[in-house]
Design a protein around this nucleic acid. Structure first.
Length: 719
RNA sequence: GGGCGGUUAGCUCAGUGGUAGAGCAUCUCUUUGACGUAGAGAGGGUCAUAGGUUCAAAUCCUAUACCGCCCACCA
């Protein structure tokens, strides 16, 4: 027999095998042999260029690679399309921090052009790292089609999409309340806000005859509306619109009584004053009653002229001084120093959110429009569409299926509460808004106007605007390409459930409008990986399992099957290193099964003689057929964990424990020897195929010893 | 305040109507020509609790308890 080490060595094998796959060209569907009329296609959720590969990426890559390899072996024209995301705010803030640390310079010190050069350099390096790491997972991605959310092709798609929506009135510019991050000097979307618990002081202030409570006295200068519930019996003497004179921070003011049923009578005194410019809830009340909006705080977090003697002070510094003044004027009734509330922060590395009313670009989710007669959404022709309606319709009608299905409710709930999406950001790294101004004129287009004097809007687009186009911008849209024709809509969108709002919903929004079809037929949501204490993995907690470290110790195949083995869709996964270790044993077991069989036969093409089958032979062949059926059905049904368990169980407890033991005696029997070899050969070959999607490296390596004419990765999955 | 998920072996998790499973841990045996990074075997579970449906429930229904997550304009 050939000289094969008794222990499987993943390190030696993996890079060699991956290169072999690359050389074969089979990652690219155009190179796959056979007729292949059916297509199967997944776009990789693009990892952020700033990041390094974490265990969540590893899980995503494994799930998708299993689906891809299975379908490739099953005769589909299979495309898995890779790419990375420029993650605008996250990337910019990271580079800004690095530059400030090294040179004490801000982006404004460097200027837009120079700063962007720096960001691009960083993004490029970071990109190379994460791509190398992705390859180590064994991902069979078609690198010839790799895309970047900020490259020229995607930029064309973004501009085209923007223009189409602008022309249809679905994108508008307007003054609205936004989440302003004074630290990064940009707006942030609702979904990018992270709420943090904080203990602070709650001040009870005397506001004329009332007592109002506030945690933010520095916003109170402009308060001239006092709001209470219309049914609050304590305040029946006051009427809506009534005006009263009272002494306030900087002197006497005239306050107006407003009755609004959004007021919680139980809270404090049941009375509050409002700050429509700087608080979302107050803003809603003010809009309902058509009240005045006054800005108190500027974009840097400093108080405006309305603050009188405090003008120009930063709110942080102003607060104690304001309290002092209120104290001296006798306007403070009491202070609750242990008031627990939540503050909004920018989760992408910025500061505390200060709501502001600003001129921004928005996508109108409620504006009605008509779909073309060619629409592939089965949306009733009699009805006017809105983005919101289409988002709901695609899932409700079953055009798009979500696994596990309870996430449907989450999805609907989010849509029902969806407000217009603020898409402009005041950062520099990203797609610049394709709108130019000249005096009062506005031009939206793919190219800048030819005449001089036009100036482009300096803002960039929310990173999810470009991500929302991902399923088709990667296929060449807006050009009419062969890839678009073949591979859209995509088969499955596989991602973590934490990203359903950010991304999944936005892809549906963009695709249903721009293409009038669905972006994908199935959404498969995986869970979040947590440590054994169910904590989210994060650098600050120091509980990260580094997939690359694990690969070095146990091998990629062990990590892959460990990740999938006990992972039901949508469930969080506390990953224990012991499981990976156990799966390393499994890879080794398979290796030695192959070694045993290889030491007994060189010929893997011999036909099995049905007449000579022993009971043990019949048993293993029938179990093999059963396992094949079970694994196939489970992969088709997206129960990858059950498929993996079935493959594991068959290999270890049917093939190794029972049949290989039985075969030892049969091999000694001259009557049975030849046929036993044929059964062993057949069983090994099929087992390798069954395990290949889960453990591609070790199976391909063993396969290479079987004198087969082509790679295991394109061998036929025999159902 | 709404919504969702979880509670199964010492630990971490699979299992969704029909005799309870995996990895790790524990114990015993095996240095036999596939495998000592191992194998064979063993112990260990009233499947959170209480009701209900069913011939049959870890699995379906109802309630309770505890844990966790998401959403929300409580000053």
């Amino acid at each position: 027999m050939k000289e094969i080490s008794s222990a499987y060595n993943p390190k030696e094998t993996e890079s060699k095998i991956y290169q072999k796959w690359l050389d074969s060209g089979y990652f690219n569907p155009d190179n796959l042999p056979g007729a292949r009329t059916k297509t199967y296609n997944i776009v990789l959720p693009p990892p952020n260029v700033t990041g390094i590969l974490h265990i969540g990426h590893a899980l995503m890559l494994v799930i998708q690679d299993i689906l891809i390899r299975y379908h490739r072996m099953s005769g589909f024209k299979t495309l898995w399309l890779p790419g990375t995301d420029h993650a605008a705010i996250a990337t910019q803030s990271k580079v800004e921090a690095m530059i400030y640390k090294a040179e004490e310079k801000t982006r404004h010190d460097l200027g837009r052009e120079e700063f962007l050069k720096r960001v691009e350099k960083y993004a490029q390096e970071s990109h190379d790292t994460i791509i190398e790491q992705t390859k180590r997972m064994g991902a069979s991605l078609d690198w010839s089609r790799e895309a970047y959310t900020l490259d020229p092709d995607r930029n064309l798609a973004v501009k085209t999409a923007f223009k189409k929506m602008y022309d249809a009135g679905l994108i508008y510019r307007g003054n609205r309340m936004v989440n302003w991050d004074p630290k990064m000097q940009t707006t942030v979307s609702d979904d990018e806000i992270e709420w943090k618990d904080e203990i602070t002081s709650l001040y009870y202030l005397k506001y004329g005859p009332f007592t109002i409570a506030t945690a933010r006295p520095e916003t109170k200068f402009g308060d001239k509306y006092v709001v209470m519930h219309p049914e609050d019996k304590r305040y029946t003497q006051y009427t809506h619109g009534q005006q009263i004179e009272l002494e306030w921070i900087n002197g006497p003011v005239k306050a107006t009584i407003i009755k609004d049923d959004s007021i919680d009578m139980e809270f404090g005194t049941g009375v509050m004053t409002i700050t429509p410019w700087h608080d979302a809830a107050d803003n809603e009340i003010a809009k309902r009653h058509n009240l005045d909006f006054e800005q108190i705080i500027d974009q840097k977090g400093k108080l405006l002229a309305i603050a009188g003697e405090f003008t120009g002070l930063h709110i942080k510094k102003a607060r104690p001084l304001i309290i002092e003044k209120l104290q001296s004027k006798g306007l403070i009734e009491k202070i609750d120093e242990k008031y627990a509330h939540r503050i909004a922060t920018n989760s992408r590395g910025g500061g505390i959110i200060e709501p502001q009313i600003m001129k921004q670009w928005f996508i109108d989710v409620n504006k009605e429009f008509e779909l073309s007669p060619e629409q592939k959404l089965n949306f009733p022709a009699s009805e006017k569409a809105t983005l919101k309606k289409l988002m709901r319709h695609t899932v409700e009608s079953g055009l798009i299926k979500i696994y596990p299905d309870h996430f449907q409710k989450t999805y609907f709930h989010w849509i029902d509460n969806l407000k217009d999406w603020c898409i402009s950001r005041q950062i520099w790294y990203g797609h610049q808004i394709p709108v130019w101004y000249k005096g009062d004129q506005v031009h939206c287009g793919i190219e800048a106007p030819k005449e001089s004097g036009w100036e482009q809007d300096p803002d960039t687009l929310d990173t999810w605007f470009s991500s929302g186009l991902w399923t088709f911008s990667t296929l060449g849209w807006p050009n009419k390409t062969k890839d678009m024709e073949l591979f859209h809509p995509t088969s499955v969108l596989e991602t973590g459930y934490d990203i359903i709002f950010f991304w999944v919903a936005r892809m549906i929004l963009m695709t249903t409008y721009l293409l009038e079809e669905i972006p994908f037929k199935t959404i498969y949501l995986h869970g979040l990986i947590r440590d054994k204490d169910k904590q989210k993995m994060s650098k600050s907690k120091g509980n990260i399992i580094d997939p690359l470290g694990v690969i070095d110790t146990y091998g990629t195949d062990a990590l892959r099957i460990a990740l999938i083995f006990s992972t039901a869709a949508g469930n969080d996964i506390p990953l224990a290193e012991e499981k990976i270790k156990g799966m390393k044993h499994f890879a080794n077991k398979l290796w030695n099964i192959a070694r045993f069989i290889l030491s007994n036969t060189d010929d893997f093409e011999t036909k099995i003689d049905q007449a000579k089958l022993t009971e043990a032979d019949k048993e293993i062949l029938s179990k093999l057929e059963l396992a094949t059926k079970e694994i196939t059905e489970n992969i088709e049904g997206l129960r990858l964990n059950e498929a993996a368990q079935a493959a594991y169980h068959f290999t270890w407890h049917e093939l190794a424990d029972i049949y290989i033991e039985a075969s030892k005696a049969q091999l000694q029997d001259p009557e049975l020897s030849a046929n036993t070899k044929a059964v062993l050969a057949k069983t090994l070959k099929t087992t390798l195929k069954l395990l290949h999607p889960f453990m591609p490296f070790v199976t391909e390596e063993i396969w290479s010893n079987l004198n087969q004419k082509d790679l295991l990765m394109i061998s036929e999955w025999e159902k």
